[in-house]
Design a protein around this nucleic acid. Structure first.
Length: 289
DNA sequence: ATCGTTGCCTGAGGGC
DNA sequence: TGCCCTCAGGCAACGA
């Protein structure tokens, strides 16, 4: 599930595929996919234009057209963005499965909702999203999107002061608070668990009960965990892959997430999984306080 | 204002 | 082998 590090890695690596190339056409699959901006409208804005820059806000990617606005993409749970040159056995297997026939390379399938074709006849860009939680919309230069306006400060640069202000008066547990994109933008379930582990704070602690030292430690842990994950290319579990089809490797470094029943690397205790706000939280009850 | 819950969606994996 | 069930979770919308 793409969170800030995965989205950032895609942002950095997608440049060579999409920047400064004239868009020839936009293809939509059999799609009953819900485009927040209709494909017709997207075509109107994009065809004949070039993306000049890719920005990121939390988990949102913003593909800018100089001065005109941007194509906004949120990957949701299973969204993927990759080049038609991507060679990935996993990807090929999946498209073969959904197409019901064996193929030796990726072919757009029923989950491939959008294809951006460039005029230079090089590779094109696919957006694929089996669970359809992803979002695609056009945002004009002077338009504002409530989705983006709502976002809190970007998690990778979160300061102790920002976190202190955000947590003041919050009775809810710290774990669901970290997942709230209006508090800080970019953290999802994996990195919330990993950050709380790194800061040795239990996910069940009410936000307002964290002391200054704990908040400082937590802010530092969030920044550190996210940067380290970016450096390792993100976490490839389930659907996430790089635009070229390769995998990230941060999943090999998980200390808490997905390690239920395994030994805590810090204190030798046992990692536990509990459910909070309908989501799993993994932590070590003996050293996360 | 804040908090917790629900629904959206489909593939994977377990049990039988 | 195949069927049914449950689970995964980002986010908006909802009710309390």
């Amino acid at each position: 599930m793409p969170e800030l590090p995965e989205v950032e890695v895609i942002r950095r690596r997608l440049g060579e595929t999409v920047l400064e190339r004239t868009i020839a056409s936009i293809r939509v699959t059999e799609s009953n996919y819900t485009f927040l901006t209709s494909p017709r409208e997207l075509r109107k804005h994009l065809v004949g234009q070039c993306f000049t820059r890719i920005n990121r806000r939390g988990k949102y990617l913003l593909f800018e057209l100089e001065g005109q606005g941007c194509l906004v993409i949120h990957l949701g749970m299973t969204g993927q963005l990759f080049s038609s040159r991507a060679l990935s056995p996993r990807l090929v297997q999946r498209s073969a499965r959904t197409k019901g026939k064996p193929t030796d390379r990726f072919e757009p399938d029923k989950h491939t909702h959008l294809t951006i074709v460039f005029a230079d006849a090089g590779d094109h860009l696919y957006f694929r999203d089996s669970r359809k939680f992803g979002k695609i919309l056009w945002l004009g230069a002077k338009e504002r999107s409530p989705r983006l306006e709502r976002l809190g400060p970007d998690a990778v640069g979160i300061t102790a002061l920002q976190l202190t202000e955000a947590l003041a008066g919050r009775r809810a547990a710290i774990k669901p608070l970290l997942l709230d994109q209006s508090i800080l933008a970019g953290v999802g379930n994996i990195y919330a668990d990993e950050s709380l582990y790194a800061a040795a704070i239990a996910p069940t602690r009410p936000g307002q009960d964290l002391g200054p030292q704990e908040i400082t430690a937590l802010a530092r842990a969030i920044r550190h965990v996210l940067k380290r994950a970016i450096a390792l290319g993100g976490s490839s579990i389930d659907d996430y892959l790089h635009p070229d089809g390769s995998d990230g490797s941060f999943q090999k470094q998980f200390a808490a997430y997905g390690r239920e029943g395994q030994t805590c690397r810090r204190c030798g205790g046992r990692i536990q999984r509990i459910v909070m706000a309908q989501r799993s939280a993994h932590y070590c009850p003996s050293c996360q306080r």
